[in-house]
């Protein structure tokens, strides 16, 4: 089996077979990361395609200072967060339109997100948790997703987010506090 460095060198030369191998090797990792952040399967698939196109176009800028997977996680996370920002902008402009009376007066109901990797007995709880994760600030959401869904260590998360391990610890601690707060509000309303 061809090693990672050789594969990257081949991709830098524009080799299609190397590109196919890279996509097939890392597609689940990229898709799962994006899916955790955007919480929509169709959007996640489109964004995963964007990520690999970026990889093909920007592979020349990969110097090998970090692991290839770190570089890939970074592109996936940035792409997903950029998408969330543009989605928020659209939502805001839709809200303004509804205020000006030009349509969209009904409040958008966001459907529950069911991650395909969650076991059936945890499905409902996980949907509640994903709704709470969606309310987290971007950097907390990215750190939490990388750690919880992809199982990255705090050190790996810090490399992806280009920050220190202590900053990741702080992000995770704040993310957990925020999640607890939101879940408490939810269960105070819904618990019988």
């Amino acid at each position: 089996m061809i090693n990672e460095t050789e594969l990257i060198e081949q991709l830098k030369r524009g080799d299609d077979t190397a590109f196919r191998t890279i996509v097939e090797q890392w597609q689940d990792m990229v898709y799962n990361t994006i899916l955790g952040i955007v919480q929509n399967e169709t959007e996640a698939e489109d964004l995963a395609q964007d990520v690999f196109i970026k990889v093909f176009e920007k592979i020349g800028t990969f110097k090998g200072d970090s692991k290839f997977s770190t570089w890939l996680y970074r592109i996936a996370t940035t792409t997903a967060l950029d998408h969330l920002r543009s989605r928020k902008r659209k939502k805001r402009s839709g809200f303004l339109q509804s205020l000006s009376g030009s349509g969209g007066e009904e409040k958008e109901q966001i459907p529950d997100f069911h991650h395909p990797g969650v076991s059936l007995d945890n499905k409902e709880r996980a949907a509640v948790l994903f709704k709470a994760i969606d309310e987290l600030p971007d950097n907390q959401k990215a750190a939490y997703t990388l750690h919880k869904l992809e199982g990255l260590s705090y050190r790996d998360v810090s490399e992806v987010l280009n920050t220190s391990v202590s900053a990741v610890e702080s992000l995770m601690s704040r993310a957990n506090q925020n999640l607890r707060k939101q879940l408490e509000e939810y269960y105070n309303k819904h618990y019988r």
Binding site: Q49, H115, P116, S119, L129, L183, Y187, Y191
Partner: peptide, 25 residues
């Protein structure tokens, strides 16, 4: 309930991408 919900992602599997992802790309 909160603790159980926070633990609900433990042991979850990775979501699998579309097997035709490369063709689409």
């Amino acid at each position: 309930e909160i603790e159980k919900t926070l633990d609900s992602l433990n042991g979850m599997k990775r979501a699998e991408a579309n097997p035709f992802l490369f063709t689409r790309i």
